[in-house]
Design a protein around this nucleic acid. Structure first.
Lengths: 147, 147
DNA sequence: CTAGTTGCAAAGAGTTTGCATGGCG
DNA sequence: CGCCATGCAAACTCTTTGCAACTAG
């Protein structure tokens, strides 16, 4: 029954990366951004290492991985320890990149509805609602690049 | 007011690609798959051309572009001429890859709800619900790779 | 005939892998 | 000390671009 538990060494790089992700909060970052953040400082981290850590953190469910079409590279975002994110929906603003966690009874019904009426078991952890958040609706005009 | 209307030549390649996308229906294809589909036949198409056509078709709203994390490359899928796909949601099965178009009043309410209660303007065209479809729920045990 | 289209080859960009060195426990 | 982590360089994959030949209208 060995769960092949990873030993999870506690390294400077691993700590720095996770801390950085946490500090970014609702924003998301790319591998490149992580590398550049530490670049030049005495805490520089090789990009291979960044890739590997982000990959692992994603697998552990500590961060979330996005493949946004606007960005060429994959984006990552800190989730939080509780990880009760399997139980609520996520809204991602296409304009500013913020991620909103949504605990709402109405939306919980969506899960029920999809399952009962459409025989579809939704994966709330992976599903993300894309759109435009409050700030960006009022603030800037979004559809600049209306194709 | 010139809309810079593209002239849209009618070429063999363009026709073949669109026809192929249509024939695939609810499935999705990658650039590579399109190329391989015609490869060897007398209708072979260069991959550069495939890229350019899929790009154009996406801009025209005739097909949909996905950046699924499972696949390395971008996926494309035929939508249909009416393009009323902006008015309903999409369910994508993580197990078999099928995409379901969902026209349902209840789900339409989601849009209203998010906007009124959460000040979030959802982009229904881009948002995709991930989960497990009917077939796959009953058929196979899914959570094999439960992280 | 003219302007858009095609496709090979090469360039770019992001990500992964091999391997020798370094560091945690 | 053993094993995992690190990071440089090279390999890979997907996508875009340059350019000359081709073709629809």
């Amino acid at each position: 029954m060995e769960n092949k538990r990873p030993v999870n060494y506690n390294t400077r790089q691993g700590q720095c990366i996770l801390d950085y992700l946490k500090s970014v909060g609702d924003g998301h970052v790319t591998v490149n951004q992580v590398v550049r953040h530490f670049e030049g400082t005495e805490e520089a981290i090789g990009q291979t290492t960044v890739y590997r850590h982000l990959e692992k953190l994603t697998a552990e469910g500590k961060i979330r991985k996005y493949a946004l079409q606007e960005d060429k590279s994959t984006c990552y975002q800190y989730i939080g320890d509780g990880s009760n994110c399997r139980e609520h929906f996520h809204l991602k603003c296409e304009s500013c990149g913020s991620l909103f966690h949504l605990d709402c009874d109405f939306l919980d019904k969506i899960e029920q509805h999809l399952l009962r009426e459409h025989d579809f078991q939704i994966n709330m952890f992976k599903t993300v609602f894309y759109g435009t958040c409050k700030k960006c609706i009022s603030g800037a005009k979004i559809g600049e690049r209306a194709t």
